[in-house]
């Protein structure tokens, strides 16, 4: 224990004197400012729809008004509809006519609309018109909610889980490499190798240092942005396990390089791959199997559940994190032992 504490204090002091720590502090301030003041709490991500109902019955216009659509989106002629869509290229124009027994809908849009979106628009328009026309009824679609309903999360706070996953938790990956290269430059590993120190305290001390820094960094980021009413045990456990996991992975990668310049290309490439689950976070329907194997995938969704609970069980997240942390530690032990502690042997 004495050995671990000594290494822990040593690493903590060395890291605290690294210029990168000031970058981290600066990043923390910028992140808090961006979340609080630059990202609005709510913004409309919906497409803009303009309607022109040319039918004699005016059923669609009636339904649209009933649905609360404002007057400015309900237009009086096809020309007006075309002008509106031309003025706002991102919008979609719905031209409805009733030339016979069956209603006819024409969609005006600059660019292409995916088949899925076309089907969704068709389904959304058919449903209110069904009582007026002899449309086939049936279970063309149904909506199923895979998780319980929860209060909507403000958009700015919704940015906090990815920031925690890709800024706070990966800090250990980056800083462990920086610390390792500093040690290589100073040549201190040779001095360590002629002590009873050993590989385990060496790794555990670094893991503990970056878990502690990550924990404080994370809490300092969350409290001003999300608030202080949090599930602290769940959050602390996730942050510590996540930081430890990435510190071990950082040591595994850095052990194969001699300095930050050599490491840079591979290190940054891995960090970029690690960030790909952010796509799934923004568009949950995009979750191919390979992306779910990236450790940040369960972490990012787990952190969202911890910060904005919907009632999902977090046991699987902790089992995953604990197993991944243990595996990465074992791998790290193997690599550090043979690459650093037995260098030249």
């Amino acid at each position: 224990m004495r050995r671990f504490l000594s290494l822990f204090m040593q690493d903590l002091v060395v890291v605290s004197r690294n210029a990168l720590m000031w970058v981290v502090v600066g990043a923390l301030v910028v992140i808090i400012m961006v979340v609080l003041f630059l990202i609005p709490a709510d913004y409309d991500l919906e497409d803009t729809y303009y309607f022109y109902d040319a039918s004699k019955t005016g059923y669609l216009e009636e339904e649209a008004r009933r649905d609360g659509l404002e007057d400015e989106f309900i237009l009086g002629s096809l020309e007006e509809l075309e002008e509106a869509v031309q003025a706002d290229p991102g919008s979609i124009g719905i031209y409805f006519s009733d030339s016979g027994e069956r209603p006819q809908i024409t969609i005006l849009h600059y660019g292409t609309i995916s088949e899925q979106n076309l089907n969704l628009i068709a389904a959304a328009l058919e449903e209110p018109l069904r009582p007026y026309y002899d449309l086939e009824t049936g279970d063309g679609y149904r909506v199923e909610y895979l998780r319980p309903f929860s209060a909507p999360v403000p958009q700015n706070q919704n940015a906090v889980p990815p920031l925690l996953a890709f800024e706070v938790i990966v800090l250990g990956f980056l800083m462990a490499a920086v610390l390792l290269f500093q040690e290589k430059a100073d040549g201190v590993n040779r001095a360590y190798r002629v002590t009873p120190g050993g590989t385990s305290p060496y790794i555990l001390a670094k893991g503990a240092v970056f878990s502690l820094i990550g924990l404080f960094y994370g809490l300092l980021m969350i409290m001003p942005t999300v608030g202080v009413s949090l599930n602290y045990p769940a959050l602390i456990l996730a942050l510590i396990l996540g930081c430890f996991l990435y510190t071990c992975l950082g040591l595994v990668v850095a052990a194969f390089f001699n300095n930050i310049s050599e490491w840079l290309f591979v290190g940054i490439a891995l960090l970029m791959v690690n960030m790909t689950p952010i796509i799934s976070y923004g568009w949950p329907s995009f979750s191919p199997a390979w992306i779910t194997y990236i450790p940040s995938y369960p972490i990012i969704f787990g952190l969202r559940e911890i910060l904005f609970p919907t009632g999902r069980d977090l046991t699987s997240l902790y089992i995953y994190l604990a197993a991944a942390a243990i595996l990465s530690y074992l791998l790290c032990h193997l690599v550090v032992h043979f690459k650093l502690m037995r260098e030249g042997r």
Partner: peptide
């Protein structure tokens, strides 16, 4: 055993006292 290396290998960001203090903590 005690080993003194030809090329000084010390933590450059630590003071002399810290270098010795943390190194001492490694022994039983």
């Amino acid at each position: 055993i005690g080993v003194s290396f030809e090329h000084p290998n010390l933590y450059s960001k630590l003071s002399g006292l810290e270098n010795l203090r943390y190194y001492a903590g490694l022994f039983d």
